[in-house]
Write a protein that binds this DNA or RNA. Structure first.
Length: 474
DNA sequence: CTTTCAATAT
DNA sequence: GATATTGAAA
């Protein structure tokens, strides 16, 4: 069996590769379009005709116009795409009875979903896909987006506004948990789809966590609040685990930064040493139980405009992995200054304009991702090409998408995310920089700030009644 | 049964 | 290496 599956995988790869060759021999869109299209019988369609130009919208058109939709409707809501995909692959290779297989597996999923609280593949749940980049989606404006999102290289589940799901996914290994059920040996190889936590999914997740409170955010409740039907408690739990882990990580960093700042302030700032009789510096508390704002190294300035141009939603969306109840709009980039600016918002070479998410053309099919105004050449409302980099660029990712997502001002959010960062040193940023300079008087000022002249400093000190300058400790 | 955590897979 | 899944323990 294992050998068979390996052979199947290879065969599927070949099929997809051939498909790719036929359709998009050149052009940057090939990677976004190299999906295996299925007709209503789950057969891989040959589309040797157009699309050579590599216009992604054409790819989308092709997909949405295909018979695949019929098949989707036949199987059920939320596109049991993966199932079909898997079936298709096997059909191609082994000539097995596809429809029986589909029914078996779909029934299996229903059985799983129906039993307990788990919704794995259950009521309208999303199927799993085990064929390379098979995309099956429902008709609708959103589908272009979902397709694009799935096709951009990301595997797994996408979610629409209504909580319905679609999935497009790469092959899975042939190992599964437990044993097959209704399908017997034939379906013993089924394994859950790997959920692709798209920004939208994460946004929902975070929103749910916010509503529940971090401490009370249990997977089952989160799942309810998210209203996403394709996720299981296990998915949520897994994500929650990572989420919490990340929060702990951030908390640790915050504590470290705080202690570092405290030490620096305490030991180096003259005003801090001399301003109080008890010897304790006048420090603005960096932390409180409920306002863990972090200002570790303001000298490493945020490169994005920290203040949204529009009000935040009532439930402040999370922009980073941690602290869902805290608005980090001013500081979140500071927490991970090593994270590069979201280059995917800026496309100096124009490459991101060719990204599927930016290539729908008007009218934009999805309100969540698409600005209501035409983006400037510096604004690419897209995603990292590599979907797996969501979490590496997480902060930047969610900064943009969260802001962007607001009903209040999508365009403003985009603008805030995309403007050249250097031009947006806000008051807060400057204040923070000044604060850092005050706290660390012997360290070089941040770039762009000229150190005061010695004469000026002495004059100022004398004006304040300080006539002796302590020796530098650096 | 649910949640959490660690191991494992991709 | 990062992220998701799985399975066992609590």
């Amino acid at each position: 069996m294992a050998m068979d599956m390996a052979r199947l995988d290879d065969h599927l790869d070949t099929i997809v590769a051939q498909q790719d060759e036929h359709q998009h021999g050149q052009g940057e869109f090939s990677q976004h379009c190299d999906v295996a299209f299925l007709d209503s019988r789950g057969e891989v369609q040959d589309e040797s005709g157009g699309n050579g130009a590599g216009e992604f919208s054409e790819c989308l058109d092709f997909v949405t116009e295909g018979d695949v939709l019929d098949f989707d409707a036949a199987v059920g809501e939320c596109g049991e795409s993966g199932i079909s995909g898997e079936g298709a692959g096997r059909e191609e290779d082994e000539g097995r009875d596809l429809e029986n297989l589909e029914l078996e597996e779909f029934g299996e999923l229903l059985e799983e979903g129906g039993g307990g609280g788990e919704r794995e593949g259950g009521s309208g749940g999303c199927g799993v896909s085990e064929v390379n980049s098979v995309l099956v989606n429902e008709v609708g404006e959103e589908e272009a987006l979902l397709l694009a999102e799935a096709a951009k290289g990301g595997d797994g589940v996408s979610v629409s506004d209504s909580g319905e799901c679609s999935s497009g996914e790469r092959k899975e290994s042939s190992q599964g948990k437990g044993g097959g059920k209704a399908g017997g040996a034939a379906t013993g190889v089924k394994k859950k789809a790997k959920v692709d936590w798209t920004p939208e999914l994460h946004r929902r997740f975070v929103h749910a966590v916010e509503q529940l409170g971090v401490e009370k955010a249990f997977p089952s409740r989160i799942l309810e609040l998210m209203g996403v039907q394709c996720l299981t408690r296990h998915n949520i739990a897994s994500h929650l685990q990572k989420y919490r882990s990340h929060r702990r990580h951030l908390a640790a960093r915050e504590a470290e930064a705080a202690s570092w700042t405290h030490r620096r302030t305490f030991t180096h700032a003259p005003w801090a040493r001399t301003s109080r009789r008890d010897g304790l510096p006048y420090l603005v508390p960096l932390h409180s139980a409920h306002t863990p704002h972090i200002q570790p190294r303001p000298s490493m300035m945020p490169t994005l405009q920290p203040q949204p141009l529009h009000p935040q939603p009532l439930t402040t969306p999370l922009k980073v992995w941690g602290y869902p109840t805290v608005d980090h709009s001013n500081v979140h980039m500071w927490q991970q200054p090593q994270v590069a600016p979201p280059s995917f918002w800026q496309a100096p070479d124009g490459s991101y304009w060719q990204h599927p998410a930016a290539s729908y053309g008007a009218p934009y099919p999805h309100p969540m991702r698409v600005p209501t105004i035409a983006p400037s050449p510096m604004v690419a409302p897209g995603f990292p090409d590599d979907s797996m980099s969501y979490y590496s660029d997480f902060d930047a990712m969610y900064l943009c998408n969260q802001t962007y997502d607001s009903d209040i001002g999508r365009a403003a959010g985009v603008a805030a995310c995309s403007k050249p960062p250097e031009t947006h040193l806000s008051k807060e940023v400057l204040d923070a920089a000044i604060g850092e300079a005050l706290a660390n008087p012997w360290t070089p000022p941040p770039l762009g700030l000229k150190p005061p002249s010695m004469e000026g400093v002495i004059a100022e000190l004398q004006r304040q009644g300080i006539n002796t300058v302590p020796p530098s400790t650096c």
